[in-house]
């Protein structure tokens, strides 16, 4: 069972935090196929957030095909993310390390690198690329 945390200071909406934490748990293998997510009532009682926020997060995860709501029973993980992506991690990490080295050689400091990544990531997302 996953346990949620909500950080008020991150600027990330509670809904996004929930979705992110489930995805993260799936990626790391903390959650596996068949596992049950906490009920809406359990989540709101544990972290004091709006029940509709939890419903919305679960609906989003369902839309992505990661979980399935079974009426009267609960919400269950239908797909693991571990196998599909973990294999690619090593190579992507290598690429990224190479890129980071290149950026440092070009004279970028940590802040510049973070800013460049952030803005590229954002613009890619706005265009629906990433």
């Amino acid at each position: 069972m996953i346990e949620f945390r909500i950080e008020p200071t991150t600027g990330v909406s509670p809904y996004r935090q929930l979705v992110h934490q489930v995805r993260q748990a799936l990626l790391l293998g903390v959650l596996r196929e068949g596992d049950q997510l906490p009920t809406v009532k359990e989540v709101v009682a544990a972290v004091a957030i709006n029940p509709n926020t939890v419903l919305k997060a679960y609906r989003e995860l369902e839309f992505e095909g990661l979980v399935e709501g079974r009426p009267g029973v609960g919400t269950f993980v239908t797909r693991s993310l571990v196998d599909s992506s973990l294999a690619a991690h090593a190579e992507l990490r290598k690429d990224l390390s190479g890129w980071l080295e290149k950026a440092r050689r070009a004279g970028l400091d940590d802040d510049s690198i973070a800013a460049l990544f952030e803005s590229t990531f954002r613009s890619g997302r706005n265009e629906g690329v990433a």
Binding site: V40, K41, V44, A45, A46, V47, A48, I49, N50, P51
Partner: peptide, 14 residues
């Protein structure tokens, strides 16, 4: 405060 809000949210869930 946190406990009070959590209780309120349980009522909202109902």
């Amino acid at each position: 405060r946190r406990e009070f809000l959590a209780d309120l949210m349980e009522l909202a869930a109902d």
